[in-house]
């Protein structure tokens, strides 16, 4: 995790330096605010990874001479084919269209959204063949 941590930290600190220069040179607060937020986007994940890196076991993907056999066995669970992301997408689509066409599409979109979100959660809970 060392490299991942340093990438985020590096970008965060660089933008922090830029923010300071910009704030005191330009004295323009809109841009300085956005830059400050961007610095946070680098530093926050960096802190998380830095914290986590000391508490996790060394990973074979960080080792230069690991063999493929070291990650034999299950590496995670992955869902197979499922219709719910499509239904969820359609729900978002119809809900968003209500901003242009009025509330009636929100009825369709909202119903699809609630239905699909519930189904996705249940699907994850149940697992196996559904």
């Amino acid at each position: 995790m060392k490299v991942e941590f340093r990438i985020y930290l590096g970008i965060g600190l660089f933008v922090l330096v830029i923010t300071t220069i910009y704030l005191f040179w330009a004295r323009e607060y809109g841009g300085a605010t956005m830059l400050f937020g961007t610095a946070g986007l680098g530093i926050m994940p960096a802190l998380y990874m830095g914290w986590w890196r000391k508490r996790m076991d060394p990973r074979p993907e960080d080792s230069k001479d690991a063999t493929i056999a070291e990650s034999q066995g299950t590496i995670g669970t992955f869902p197979g084919h499922t219709i719910w992301p499509f239904v969820l997408g359609m729900g978002v689509f119809f809900s968003a269209l209500s901003l242009a066409f009025g509330a009636w599409t929100l009825v369709i979109g909202g119903a699809l959204l609630i239905f699909a979100a519930t189904s996705v959660v249940l699907e994850s809970r149940r697992g196996g063949l559904v």
């Binding site: 493929i68 034999q72 299950t74 995670g76 669970t77 992955f78 697992g127 063949l129």
Partner: peptide, 10 residues
């Protein structure tokens, strides 16, 4: 749907 346990090399 199925939720399958995945191996890196199958």
């Amino acid at each position: 749907m199925t939720i399958a346990e995945e191996k890196r090399v199958d």
